[in-house]
């Protein structure tokens, strides 16, 4: 692929439009090749300029988003996601190329990155300590994570709690936060200055708009954090705030059910999770008001370490 570009005539210093783009996402390097101009524009809006593909970094995930066959370019155009080894999803409409790429990268990380215990959780950091928000889809995890990221917490990740089981530290993976359906409105009202991308209507998860990861998070995306608090959030409409301490064993069970690769890691996963739960204080939270929840989180006891 690179050779083909090397042969193509080009002005010095100008990358040909279809050249692969390199993005760093925390511990991973991703190479994206796509002819879709809008997708490339959204990528640079979200993650900044790409690095040149100099062949000097390890590429963890080699991704392509292609157009469908010629006929489909004319009628209901498609976007097809491919990794270097697989085409895991059915094609999306071309206008949904960005959410497709983001989900595709999630799939890649979840199926390959077993150098981490991967929790399905939002993770944020303050004063060097990390807050883990593990939750099932629909519990308001992304909304809460986005809101905290807009109120001074450093965003590590909205989707993956990457626990390095060698060190017990959490690694950042600061990417766009996909807000779904009513959450889009909620975050717009919560922080009118929030940088939201275009709304993609009627995806498989409903309407989706992405919150751009804060520049500070991107800049510090190689700084790991010591886990200190685990809160299992659950949004229930009109519910008063309830924050209840959780026993270690309950937290352990819920975390193990909520991880992408807990079973696969076997004893390594068990040890990592045990250490995580022991080093954290755990709560279960139910909330109906975002501001009340954030205040409660801001007042969680400072860890004695």
């Amino acid at each position: 692929m690179n050779n083909a570009f090397a042969r193509a005539p080009q002005r010095v210093g100008v990358r040909p439009p279809r050249a692969p783009a390199i993005y760093r996402h925390g511990p991973f390097t991703v190479r994206v090749t796509t002819p879709l101009r809008r997708l490339r524009a959204l990528l640079s809006w979200c993650y900044g300029d790409s690095e040149p593909d100099a062949g000097t970094v390890l590429v963890h995930f080699d991704l392509q988003v292609r157009q469908g066959p010629l006929l489909r370019r004319l009628f209901s155009p498609q976007a097809i996601f491919r990794t270097d080894t697989a085409t895991p999803f059915a094609p999306f409409p071309r206008s949904h190329a960005f959410p497709l790429l983001e989900w595709g990268l999630n799939w890649c990380v979840a199926t390959r990155a077993h150098q981490f215990l991967m929790l399905h959780a939002g993770v944020l950091e303050r004063d060097g300590y990390a807050l883990v928000l593990p939750a099932v889809p629909g519990s308001g995890k992304s909304t809460l994570t986005a809101a905290l990221a807009l109120r001074g917490w450093r965003l590590l990740s909205d989707e993956f709690g990457l626990l390095d089981w060698r060190t017990g530290l959490l690694m950042p993976l600061p990417r766009a936060i996909p807000l779904k359906n009513r959450s889009i409105r909620v975050i717009r009202d919560f922080a009118p200055e929030a940088e939201l991308g275009p709304v993609f209507p009627k995806t498989r998860k409903g309407d989706v708009a992405h919150l751009r990861p804060p520049a500070e998070s991107r800049r510090r995306q190689h700084e790991s954090a010591q886990p200190a608090w685990i809160v299992f959030p659950r949004y229930v409409r009109n519910s008063p705030l309830q924050l209840a301490g959780l026993h270690d064993s309950t937290a352990f069970t819920r975390l193990s059910q909520n991880a992408f690769n807990y079973r696969l890691l076997g004893a390594t996963g068990f040890d990592a999770l045990t250490q995580l739960v022991r080093s954290c204080r755990c709560w279960s939270a139910q909330f109906g008001d975002l501001n009340a929840m954030i205040t409660a989180i801001d007042h969680l006891p400072v860890p004695e370490m």
């Binding site: 390890l58 077993h114 150098q115 079973r263 696969l264 076997g266 390594t268």
Partner: peptide, 21 residues
């Protein structure tokens, strides 16, 4: 081996170990 390469390669051993169990 460069450390990031080695960690990426060895991470894939979990599949085999899981299957062997």
């Amino acid at each position: 081996c460069p450390p990031e390469v080695w960690s990426d390669l060895t991470a894939q051993r979990f599949f085999a170990e899981h299957k062997q169990a």
